[in-house]
Design a binder for these strands. Structure first.
Lengths: 137, 137
DNA sequence: CTCATATATGAACAGCTCTTCAAGTGACAG
DNA sequence: CTGTCACTTGAAGAGCTGTTCATATATGAG
């Protein structure tokens, strides 16, 4: 329907949309992961996007810790830690081992471990993340 | 000060906290990145945690696109795209090239590119991210 | 049994985020 | 100049998120 590489009008989701490079748009749409996969991936990033939750996960990189030690390491209340762990547990990112009245948590998701490793590899190397510096050029 | 590997009381930030394994806690605290680095990293994850923003960045993996094509690819209004790009630009994750009245955006941060590549490598491979499945055992 | 300890949960509230709508800017055509 | 086009911006509101405080559950000690 459209094989021009200049302005054209695409019909997407039953809606006419003006595009500049129709072929590129079609190709990129082709490569785009399924909507639910995008949402799942965004969810994972969202779980890593809170500093306190991130600290918890970083603390667990070396092995399991109990709730009160996690609270001590990350400087949060035990209640806050418990809420955060509940969320992470619901997404199978951490798992708990129970021993008496203690609960020992460990990092369970290898995919998340890789993301954390990669992210930590770059901490400090990136000066460029200071927000509100206005646009470019 | 504390070399027991059983219950003890640590003084952290001028506050007494009960811990189970004082040595582990001290060691993990030692390895924890600086607070500002944790916050910066969490910020980056936060920028990747919105499905629409994530779609924009995925679309840009193959090369630059103009705003209206990004809107077509990701199924958002041009206004929403522009707002999202503004945020990403402020964090130096994307950059713009201007040509006439068009603005062509590209993915500028190689670190973010790596995170995206790693995350996409695993899309679909992970069934385990469905929320609200209750805790374990 | 009763009590203290370790963790979990619920409710509620403040603060943030994302979308939308309306209006603004700058480039190009005529 | 005037109008249109591509993009940007501001303001406002709905909805989501993370914290806190109070209370609940469960284990182990005595």
């Amino acid at each position: 329907m459209n094989s021009s590489s200049s302005d054209s009008v695409l019909t997407i989701d039953g809606c006419s949309v003006k595009v500049v490079d129709g072929d590129r748009v079609a190709a990129v749409r082709e490569r785009m992961p399924a909507p639910e996969d995008v949402v799942d991936t965004a969810d994972v990033f969202g779980l890593l996007s809170d500093p306190n939750r991130l600290r918890l996960l970083v603390a667990l990189l070396d092995g399991e810790l109990c709730v009160c030690d996690l609270a001590a390491v990350t400087g949060q209340s035990e209640s806050a830690v418990s809420h955060a762990l509940r969320l992470l547990r619901a997404h199978r990112i951490v798992a708990a081992r129970r021993s008496g009245r203690m609960a020992y948590y460990r990092l369970e998701d290898p995919h998340v471990r890789m993301l954390l490793d990669l992210a930590l590899e770059h901490t400090g190397h990136t000066e460029a993340i200071h927000p509100e510096r206005g646009g470019d050029h």
